[in-house]
Design a protein around this nucleic acid. Sequence first.
DNA 1: CTGAAAGCGCTTACAG
DNA 2: CTGAAAGCGCTTACAG
Lengths: 333, 333
Amino acid sequence: MTVKDLARDLGMSVSTVSRAFHPHAVIAPQTRDLVLQRAAEIGYRPNPFARSLITKRTSIVGLVVSDITNPFYPEVVTRLTEDLRAIDMNVMLVAASASGEIDDAVRLLLTYQPDLAVILASTLSTAARRECDEAGTPVIFFNRLSNDDDAFGVTCDNAAGGALVADYLIDRGHRRLAYVAARPDASTNIERREGFVRRAVERGLASPAVIEAGLFSYEAGYHAAPGFAALSPRPDGVFCANDILAIGFMDGVRRELGLSIPDDLSVVGFDDVAMAAWPSHGLTTVRQPVEAMLASTVELARKLAAHASTAPFVNRIPPAGLVERQSARTRHD
Amino acid sequence: MTVKDLARDLGMSVSTVSRAFHPHAVIAPQTRDLVLQRAAEIGYRPNPFARSLITKRTSIVGLVVSDITNPFYPEVVTRLTEDLRAIDMNVMLVAASASGEIDDAVRLLLTYQPDLAVILASTLSTAARRECDEAGTPVIFFNRLSNDDDAFGVTCDNAAGGALVADYLIDRGHRRLAYVAARPDASTNIERREGFVRRAVERGLASPAVIEAGLFSYEAGYHAAPGFAALSPRPDGVFCANDILAIGFMDGVRRELGLSIPDDLSVVGFDDVAMAAWPSHGLTTVRQPVEAMLASTVELARKLAAHASTAPFVNRIPPAGLVERQSARTRHD
DNA sequence: CTGAAAGCGCTTACAG
DNA sequence: CTGAAAGCGCTTACAG
């Protein structure tokens, strides 16, 4: 079933049939209707490969993920895939656990000439980034920023989120704050810490202690418990770089140190993943503005697909608020 | 950068250059080496679209997911994507939350003529299945079986898993068993229940009560607590259709009914997702043979990509064992 | 507004 | 073993 078949069927030329499928092509409205209707009847759709061979556009978005143990990402991947489909873009998924593999994966992805790459992974290697540039593929970093400047970014205002947590804890009487840090190179980790520490100091507290957990994972949080125990005086308010880290940290602190939350210490996370609301965790946390971040990404994808190039910019969206649950003491006592 | 460029650069014909990239093509070994080496140097890769226009093969695997709140799937999606890339296949992801959307999504996917579709979603509508058949795209159901016969399936032996749980509970002194059921139409749910119930009856117990939770989700499990409370006599051993359901059920039973696990009742899940091992859950569960299931799927993908058609079959892999944690009483008392 | 023709980047019979 | 040529299913100047 090709244009030719449809053209013959309709007694038109292939050119005319082809034009019917292009919104901006010059064609009589009635002719277009005729073609589209008949196409729907017999189930014809233009072959996207043949099309992209000429147009140099593929309607493919390459989605690069790696941080898969963080439940924040599956949700984003699903939502993004659905939302992009609504503007007729298809997601080609590239997943990588080790960072060495990601370069290969991106290279293979580029072979399919995606109109756009969206990076959900912690960091994309400089080599892979350069290849995207050479291929002329724009890159959007979602929830992470690149270290260099020539990429788009859509992220939460993480520093504002960190400050929000500091205010929340201080307003409720906490005086000895600490931060459980994740990947040292991740912009999210850095900005959340900075916003948190800065606000604490502004409000006259000692600079919060920092416990290096190293990763955004349950295990990293769990194993940060000894680092917490070593702190003296013991902090009473702990901000963890994200939810999954916070959940691991709470389990570690309870199980390994026998401490009680929020009686012995308050814990606050960042993301508001679904499981933060489960009674077994009851995590007080900063809610990411996921809807706004998705909308911004899709809008940007649409623009990049339509026009040529815009100068790269970062869209930093305010957090969607702090969700109060049971992991942080709420009274000033 | 096209074959033409490379051919000119090497002083060869495009035919020869093209042949260098096809393992089975007739070409002098040294010529091939020359071409491949130069291609690597200048970064040439054949355009997969132009290629597939002729070969009718795309190296694209369409991955259809929907049950995204189940943490079992993100892991599978990542692993499958990586493993398929190792045999040079690329994953095009199709995600859908509502079931109406999935038909559209599959239709769009077929436009890219994937060599294969892998279904991780609960069920694929009959309409979408027919379209795959018409397009000649083989379908593999992963961890689910189709209701009709003409599709491949890779799954755990769920009935054996259910029997395993019955034996485990009975051997440890439980006498009043119950099953918390998920999607009534899902083969996993049906088979696990059947295996569990059959073995319980075989061993002389009353047929286990069945609580219909309706879905494979935390919320469904949580809200099954009242249904459990309504049972008389109260069951002492509960098998939940999967882990995420079990975790929700445990939270519901503790929070809504004030019961203690495993003192008041034992709970066993199915999957062994990462969070089942967390101290906050400590879920005793049946481990899915994920490695073997992935290997089988990739192997099947390779075969389907290479040869033409094999008769559809189902590969039912024994469970990888029962993992003992804290949610089920281990002593006979 | 429509059609005939060239061409996108490849592969693959067909000759040699 | 290699090359010239046809053709995969489209799109898009160019004429009319």
